[in-house]
Amino acid sequence: MWDWGYANSILPKLLEVIPTTLASAILGFILACLLGLPIALARRSSKKWIAWPVAAFSEFIRSTPLLIQLFVLVFVFPQSFNITLSPFLAGVIGLGLHYSTYLSEVYRSGIDSVPRGQWEASIALNFNKLRTWLRIVLPQSIPPTIPVMGNYLIVMFKETPTLSAITVVELLMTAKVIGSASFKYVEAFTLVGIIFLVLSYPSSLLVRALERRMKRNERRGIA
């Protein structure tokens, strides 16, 4: 059944790959944040030739599995475009691109929640477009989305095991290697599950607390 001694012996090997796992999630998240904003802005654009293709592309990415997108990055890119990516880099790009479409929706809802009066006031004060966006709209629309963004960081962290399919040496990959060497899957996979829970549960509690606090402040702001 469960072998404590064995579990103890493999734990260090698993802990060793936590940094790689976290790095892929965090780098992917940063990429998603950076790509998400231009996607959100493009989809809001009044120029159809910008808005439409970006919307179609982003819907396509959102509606297809990350796994297949990762395969495209590692199998098709070297073959068709002569671009060879390391598994880790491909993982980061895949994660980042996939979730940029989700984050663009987060940005969009943040931007939409800025009251019309703010836009009208900016016009009345004769601000130019850039100033309106940078000084008025974005500073108001990004902060309320921070808890949701935090949630997506956690979601992306939990998505990192998918990267094992393109041989990124993260937690699940390591557990699989350990397990197949000894045919003792129970300890390896259970430990990986616990490590994920230990890392993600407190973070999600933190995000929920942040969310509650922002809601309270918001209500106070109205009153």
Binding site: L172, F189, G193, F196, Y201
Partner: peptide
């Protein structure tokens, strides 16, 4: 709190 793939493997 854990991920789908881990649950699937487990």
């Amino acid at each position: 709190g854990t991920s789908l793939l881990i649950q699937l493997f487990w």
